[in-house]
Amino acid sequence: MLLQAPAAMASLATAILNHPGITLATVHSSGVEDQANARQNIADMAAGGPAHRSSYGTAPGGVVMLDGRLLRGMLALAEQYTFSVSEICGGSHNSNSRHYAGIAADFNVVNGRRISAAHPALAAFKTRCRELGATEVLGPGSPNHDTHVHAAWPRLT
């Protein structure tokens, strides 16, 4: 297991915050307002702390450190694509979702176009997520994933 030093995680998060090709949502699609939106998750990590999880629906609340594999994956994706992240560890997902473990992100816009089954880069984007280590990659055609690509890395424990 790779050691995830807080300073290294803060540096990765800062790079994500400052990357011109990465947009981070400041609201949840549910309309619930809290301190667990994607932008705040990354800002929390950039400040050296854990990211907040939502506490509505099936969300457990509390905090979690985002995994370095997820953060490095987002930066690697940004070398090839521009994208928007709608959720990281906030929002309401399946109660056993990898989002709550800090190892998943939902991408709702890639290269300036909303995710749909007709997105021209959908297959390539999903393939790239898998190449970067994501083992759970869902999108249009998967239940409840018609408008985004969900990419999650393996649990370590």
Rank of each mutant, 00 (worst) to 15 (best):
L71M: 13
M1T: 14
L70K: 06
H145L: 03
D146R: 10
R128W: 06
R72D: 10
A25F: 09
I22A: 08
L2M: 14
E131W: 09
P143M: 06
H52W: 11
S92T: 12
S84K: 11
H52E: 12
P120W: 07
Y81N: 02
V63T: 15
F83G: 00
L156G: 10
G90T: 07
P120E: 07
L2V: 15
L75A: 08
T135I: 12
R39I: 12
G61A: 02
H150T: 02
S116I: 07
V63S: 12
A101S: 14
T14K: 13
T58L: 12
G139L: 00
P140C: 03
L2R: 15
I115C: 00
L71E: 01
R128E: 09
D67K: 05
V64Q: 01
G73W: 04
E136H: 07
E79S: 10
Y100V: 06
A46E: 02
W153G: 00
S29Y: 13
G112S: 08
A104T: 07
P50A: 14
S142D: 13
A47T: 07
E87G: 05
R155M: 15
L77F: 05
A78R: 02
A59H: 07
K126W: 08
R98I: 06
P143A: 10
S116Y: 04
V64E: 01
Y56S: 03
H148S: 05
Q4F: 08
H148Q: 04
G31P: 08
A5D: 15
R155D: 15
N18I: 07
G91P: 10
T135E: 12
H150I: 02
S30W: 04
G68K: 03
R98S: 08
S54W: 05
G91C: 11
A47G: 10
P20Q: 09
T157A: 15
T23Y: 14
L24P: 05
H52P: 07
T26M: 13
M9I: 13
Y100W: 12
L70H: 05
A46D: 03
T127R: 13
Y56N: 04
L77M: 11
G31I: 11
H93I: 11
